[in-house]
Design a binder for these strands. Sequence first.
DNA 1: TTTAAAAGTTAGCTATGGCTAATAATTTAC
DNA 2: GTAAATTATTAGCCATAGCTAACTTTTAAA
Lengths: 149, 149
Amino acid sequence: MTHDPNLAAPAEPPSSDNRSEAFQGVREARRNELAEDYVELIAELIHEHGEARPVAIAARLGVRAPTVTKALDRLAREGLITREPYRSVFLTEEGHALARECRRRHEIVLRFLIRLGLDAETAERDAEGIEHHVSEQTLALFAAYADEG
Amino acid sequence: MTHDPNLAAPAEPPSSDNRSEAFQGVREARRNELAEDYVELIAELIHEHGEARPVAIAARLGVRAPTVTKALDRLAREGLITREPYRSVFLTEEGHALARECRRRHEIVLRFLIRLGLDAETAERDAEGIEHHVSEQTLALFAAYADEG
DNA sequence: TTTAAAAGTTAGCTATGGCTAATAATTTAC
DNA sequence: GTAAATTATTAGCCATAGCTAACTTTTAAA
């Protein structure tokens, strides 16, 4: 599940302090956020338009084309997508699994926020940021509240 | 409020697409996360021990000392802290304001998660990640739920 | 007071994630 | 079928955020 080279990790963890665990976890999560955003978006684009072209990815993410090229190189290196130069992008099995997982989280967070009383637009924006940082336990509580709060 | 050089921003925004706004916002938030974590932690350390030493910051964040030195340089450049070589760190007025704001968010998110039914440890970990990504609207709903849900 | 330990800094490495400018490939239009 | 427009890539820049190794400063101990 963890396609995470983690090349800059210390030989020996800097600290086993209890308080540092939360930050360690957050940094871990941050490293995967971009990959998750891309994979989720690629799945959406394929679903909506039959293919995921870099130009569409760039437009949706609000970044320039070369940024997308570089990011896709990294995703390919990590085994989440396959691609050929100047062609559309495809998800590997692993990428597809990650996309499903992301979509699931996103939907639960979104439904939860809307149920809480948030307007759809703000809910979408907040869900985008929150979805990468909720534990499975929190997700379960969100789902329960959304379903019958 | 925004001490944000944003040097790599495009001359003309890549896209005004509605769907891209959420991602733009998340990227914006991500840029400030580290600074917020540091400032919040520095305030805590000062409160707990009377001073914030780099060695303590490194231990709490779970990173190495040079990482902290560099980050503190950046915070000083941004006007959030003041410091002298080999000495403890102090918050500027702006840094103090940001720390208060972060603490407020953190506490609301934490209280909310615990009220939802999460155990304290997981709540702490999730709050650390979530606090940077909640809008003022969501925060208000969280607070309301925590106070009398 | 001198020395050893701890703390902090500097230098230099890697990788990510933005960007622009220039180039290459593919599509589209004529 | 060629020319123009669009799309994609490459090269090269900058800043962040981590790391180790080596060095300096400060603090603590003997």
